[in-house]
Design a protein around this nucleic acid. Sequence first.
DNA 1: GTCAAATTAGACAGTATTGTCTAAACCGTC
DNA 2: GACGGTTTAGACAATACTGTCTAATTTGAC
Lengths: 233, 233
Amino acid sequence: MKHADKSAVIASRAFACSDFGTAETGLSFTRPGSGQCMKRDTILDAAARAFCRDGFAGASIDLIAAEASVSRQTIYNHYRDKEMLFGAVVGEIMERMNAALSGILTTFPEKPDNLEQELTLFAIRLGKNCTCNRDGEFLRKLIQAEGERYPELFAAWREIGPARVWSTVSDKLARLAKSGALDIDDPDLAVRQFLALVNADLQFCGLMGKTPTEKEIENAARNGVRTFLRAFG
Amino acid sequence: MKHADKSAVIASRAFACSDFGTAETGLSFTRPGSGQCMKRDTILDAAARAFCRDGFAGASIDLIAAEASVSRQTIYNHYRDKEMLFGAVVGEIMERMNAALSGILTTFPEKPDNLEQELTLFAIRLGKNCTCNRDGEFLRKLIQAEGERYPELFAAWREIGPARVWSTVSDKLARLAKSGALDIDDPDLAVRQFLALVNADLQFCGLMGKTPTEKEIENAARNGVRTFLRAFG
DNA sequence: GTCAAATTAGACAGTATTGTCTAAACCGTC
DNA sequence: GACGGTTTAGACAATACTGTCTAATTTGAC
C-alpha cells in the first residue's frame, strides 16, 4: 500500500477505533463489557507515552509492550501494525481533547456580570484541561513532529478541534461586542489574539523547557485577559 | 559513555564545531581555505533537512549521505557519529539564529517617529528572519521533539537566544514607557505579550499546517502591533 | 468444571541501521 | 609527475526492530 493511501486509512479509522472490530477488519477484539477492555486502554496509554517521548520512528513496539505489561503479540492482535496503533492513539487523544473542548466552550461567558473574572476563569479552564495537560502536550508534540507525514490524520481534527474553538469563541466575542461589553472590529482576529495572550506565559514556560504549574496557568490567564481587555474592553 | 554525559559533551561541542579539529578530537578536518569546506556545509544542510523532517531517530545516515551527494564514510570522518552530527547541526543553526537575532534586536525603535510603523517593521523582520524561516522551524521542531532527550544541548541556547531577546526588548520597552511613548507596568510581561500578539496569526498558520507567506507575516505583524498599542499605547 | 477466546513467551525471517574497515580513486600542491 | 590527505564504494559485523507463527497458558462466561 502506498504511504499516502495508508495515511488516509489510518485517518479514517482514527476516530472509529474505539468501537469493536468484526470480520470486516479481520481483527479480534474484546467484547464490550469484558474486563479485558482494560488491556486496550493500558496499551494505548503506554503507546501514547512512548510516541510522545520518542516519536513515531523512535518508539518501539517491544518497549511499549513492556511498559504496558503486555506481550508484544497482544498489541499486534489489537492493532494490526505500528501505524494502526499510532492512529488509534492519536484518535483517542483527539476524541478526549474534543470532548474537553466541547465542555469548556459552553462555559464562555454569555451575559457576564464581571467580564474580566469570567474570561479569566474560562482561560484557566482552557489552560488546565487542554493546553497544558498531557493530551495537549501530546498533540502539540505529535502534530509538529508527524503532522507532515500523516496529513489526513490531523486534518480532520483541525476542523472539529481548533477551528471549532475559533469559530465558536469568535461568535461569542461578536455577541459581546454587539452588546457593548467589548469593542471589537474583527472577531476572528480577536479570538486568535485572545488565545495568544492567554497562552503567552505558557509558551514562555514551554520554551524554557518546563511545564507550567497550576499557579502559573492561573497567572497566565489573568495577565492575558487583563491585556485583552485593555485593548478591547 | 552514559547518555547524560554524552549529551553534555555534545552540548559543549555544539558551539565549537565550526572550528577545525586537531589531534585532540582525533578527527581529520578539512583545512580552512580549502574549497572542500563546502562538503561540511553540504552535509550539515542535508542533515538539518533530514533531522527536521524525520527526527533524530527517524533520520538515517545513509539517506543524509545520499541527499548530500557524499559517501557515508565522509560523514563519519567529519562527525564521529550520529549524535555528534546532530549536535553540530543544532549548534550551527543556533549560531545562525543568534546572529540573525542580534542584528534584528539593534533595529528596535529607540526614539520612534511613528511608533506603530516602526514596531510593525521590527515585528516583520523578526517573523521573516527568525520565526518563520527554515532555521526557526528547525529549532521549534527539534526543541519540542528532542529537547527533553538533550537538555544541555538547548539550555545554553535559551540563555543567548530567547532569554536575550526578552531582556533586551524588555529594556527597550521600559525606556519607551519612561519616555511616555507607552504605558507599561511590567515590561517583562509586555515583551511576552508583544511577541505573542505578533505571532498569533503565525501560530494560527502553523496549527493549520502551512507556513505563512510573506504577506501573511506582514499582516500578522500589523495586527499584533495594532492590538499591542491599543493595550499599551 | 468446561470451553472458547484471549494472552503469553519465544522462536523466527526479513529488513534496516550504525559504525568500522579496506582498497581504490581522486584532488590540490609542490 | 609524485605525494599527502580526502573521498568513495562496498563489504562487513553487530544490533535493533517489525511482523508472523506456534504452542502453551490463562481468563472469563456459562
